[in-house]
Design a protein around this nucleic acid. Structure first.
Lengths: 253, 253
DNA sequence: GAGTGGTCTAGACCACGGA
DNA sequence: CCGTGGTCTAGACCACTCC
């Protein structure tokens, strides 16, 4: 009879909160604007701070907010499109490359990668570290694993390490004819090292792009790049990609 | 002097916990095995349940664990590679398509998409809903936005709605010559609708793949597909992709 | 009904950034 | 120094699955 169970599945408070905040973000806040602090917001909505934080966490995951300890919570700009696959059939370090080399070491790679690299599990490879900056902020950090076999002629390279050597190794790589590359994307969380480089806390969500560069039928190089998931939209294929907006976007004055 | 500040930056408990658990997962547990419940684990490690949960959350985000209410926490199998870009230059619904059509509606798309679709903001388009299953479990849910202009000859289609109509619309789409497609990947969280279809709770992390299908220089169709981020590794380009393992993988008996 | 993970509370202290 | 977000605690109750 009459007792129709409206809200028989009551949605969690944090979920409702997220919705309310999301709408407020669209209509009442400008990009870059600072939100009230968490204690105030929690009080205003009549919930515990932990609950409020659960909602903020989701919004940050979706790239709507940016939180920084000691500073506050700000409205994030729309994610930037970062091209990943358009350098199709191009070696790392080639012209128009968005990366810049940091350093280069000669080390034994993690056992998990040896299989893909088709090297012995105890064979050292060149590991080039690179970083990528877009619109003034770091967006990705990469480790490039290059078996010695891919860059046979490294004599005459004076720099024993550092950025200069990294560039030299990449230059050597260009001499191989690139057949194709295979990309994979998955969700991960930033390790302590990558976190520092991306200016995030450890554990921050990242998109891990694994690229296998294939030349002469063999894996000539393996790249593992971690992109900030909060600020980046990865674009594959041809051009800059699709523009999606959540709602009205204004700029903080 | 002498008081060298070891652990001047003490790592958070949950972070340390995550590391310990991660190693235990590699060495002491088999895929599919059920972990002790959260209260026991928390007690065993001498932390509050909330802290233990923070560690489990991270491991689930990384695809190492799977948690189900009323059941328990199990060790997840390695992520499955799901091909996304290899159907390059193929329309949705073509042969070897991993999707299966669910239904089709004629509706006005969200304003955020109208711009990309190059339609008037109040113009209705065909919205085909599809789902994708891999290894027996749902991995993705998709909404395909197809302007009427892309499928001009829909007369003679008897089915007014449902899966039959969806297939008919896709069949019509095949007649256009596909120029190219542009893909973008970003992190999102599952809405209530997608969550149900993916057998996850709302807010679960998903990888949103936006694909713009271009024919005759215009956007002929726009696809927004949400993949389960915990179980999927998206592969772009040629073949099945790169295999990465965390450590020893065993199978539950 | 028993046991699981999911939500929520009301506190506390800590680490960091900026004035 | 203060105010911010980040971590942590010790409880409570709820929703779900399975027996």
């Amino acid at each position: 009879m009459g007792t129709t169970q409206l809200e028989s599945v009551p949605e969690p408070k944090y979920w409702h909160l997220k919705t309310v905040l999301s709408e407020a973000l669209d209509s009442e806040f400008a990009v870059g604007e600072i939100l009230p602090n968490e204690r105030d917001l929690a009080a205003r909505f009549g919930v515990a701070r932990a609950t409020l934080r659960q909602a903020l966490e989701q919004l940050e995951l979706e790239g709507r907010l940016q939180r920084r300890r000691g500073v506050g919570t700000t409205v994030a700009p729309p994610r930037m499109g970062v091209s990943v696959g358009s350098e199709q059939h191009a070696w790392p370090g080639g012209p128009h490359d968005a990366w810049h080399a940091v350093d280069c070491r000669l080390e034994v790679p993690p056992a998990a990668l040896a299989e893909t690299l088709v090297t012995a599990t105890d064979e050292a490879v060149h590991i080039v570290r690179r970083s990528r900056v877009s619109r003034g902020q770091p967006v990705a950090s990469e480790l490039l694993y290059i078996p010695s076999a891919s860059v046979p002629d490294l004599s005459g390279i004076d720099a024993p390490s550092g950025a200069a050597r990294a560039r030299a190794v990449l230059r050597e790589l260009q001499r191989l004819e690139l057949e194709r590359q295979e990309n994979a994307v998955e969700l991960g969380s930033a390790g302590a090292d990558a976190a520092k480089e991306l200016d995030r806390l450890p554990g921050a969500p990242v998109l891990v792009v694994t690229t296998r560069h294939i030349a002469r039928g063999r894996t000539a190089a393996l790249s593992v790049a971690t992109y900030r998931a909060d600020t980046c939209r990865l674009t594959f294929g041809d051009s800059g990609g699709v523009e999606i907006h959540h709602g009205p976007e204004r700029q903080a004055s």
